[in-house]
Write a protein that binds this DNA or RNA. Structure first.
Length: 276
DNA sequence: AGGGTGACCTGTCGGC
DNA sequence: TGCCGACAGGTCACCC
């Protein structure tokens, strides 16, 4: 579900409100992808200092009464959403984690349980390092340099779509926006990353930024169940050029959009607009 | 080291 | 109606 735009939209929807809030209670449901890494009760009495984002992770800086400064890493997995409630309704079957503060309850809803909430003592904590160290550059920050991007692609033999998804070159681009960015750049998803030309790489660099920025402006994509911290849907899916449009005419040239499977993920492209 | 594969988990949808 | 397989926005451990 959530790629960079959805995670960032979610962050913006609650970060300011919970920053400075004290943790009154924690409720855990069925286990998530990874263990929390601390006693839920040990967070109570702590204070949220702020919420940052790295790739598809939300990093909540906090202080804890017993463990000192710490970091709560939130990941939404495939089906997760985070919502901030003034007063939450009774927890449903898929409500996996509640962080109750005096400024509201932050609730992780995640049917498939691929998401996670993980406590680390800081970014140097081995738990945090395992999750964050291999991540590539942030696509919407100045460190995302076009020529450095091209050089990184030249070292990879895998198909360009899969290199985008891997997240070790650039983070935050998931299955929807990888297909969309490759369409915008006119590059066939199956092309080996090492064979992407300099001109193509520069177009792709711009396309990644443009697609993610546009998705942010549209509140993300709601395919099935994504909603932001206020429970509202995103609208980018309405203007997707290729994603989930197999068999439909290309919005540019009218050619039928094709579907293929790469690394067990669906890819969509236009054979005419993305010739090589 | 990079690349390919299976695994994790639950729900929904289409076909028979 | 029921069953079965395919598929869904992510990413990790494992093997070559």
């Amino acid at each position: 579900m959530p790629e960079l735009p959805e995670v960032e939209i979610t962050r913006r929807g609650f970060a300011d409100r919970v920053s400075g809030a004290h943790i009154l209670r924690v409720r855990t449901g069925q286990p998530l992808r990874w263990p929390l890494g601390c006693e839920p009760a040990s967070l109570v009495g702590g204070q949220v200092l702020g919420v940052r984002r790295r790739g598809k992770y939300l990093l909540m800086d906090l202080t804890t009464p017993s463990n000192g400064p710490g970091l709560l890493l939130w990941h939404l997995g495939m089906s997760g959403s985070l919502r901030l409630f003034d007063s939450p309704p009774p927890a449903g079957k898929h409500d996996r984690f509640d962080l109750v503060t005096e400024r509201g309850t932050l609730r992780l809803h995640d049917p498939r349980r691929f998401g996670a909430v993980v406590f680390a003592r800081g970014q140097a904590d081995p738990v945090a390092r395992k999750l964050l160290d291999g991540l590539g550059v942030e696509p919407l920050e100045p460190g995302f340099d076009p020529l450095v991007f091209w050089q990184a692609l030249r070292r990879r033999r895998a198909p360009i779509k899969q290199v985008l998804l891997a997240g070790d070159v650039v983070v935050g681009v998931g299955n929807i926006y990888a297909s969309e960015a490759l369409f915008a750049a006119g590059i066939r998803p199956t092309r080996a990353a090492s064979r992407v030309t300099r001109a193509q790489a520069l177009r792709l660099h711009a396309a990644v930024q443009q697609v993610l920025t546009r998705a942010l402006a549209q509140g993300g994509s709601t395919l099935r169940d994504f909603s932001n911290a206020q429970g509202e849907s995103g609208y980018f899916q309405l203007e997707a050029m290729v994603y989930d449009r197999a068999g439909l005419p290309c919005r540019i040239c009218g050619t039928t959009i094709r579907w293929l499977r790469q690394g067990q993920r669906s890819t969509f492209y236009c054979p005419v607009c993305q010739p090589v």
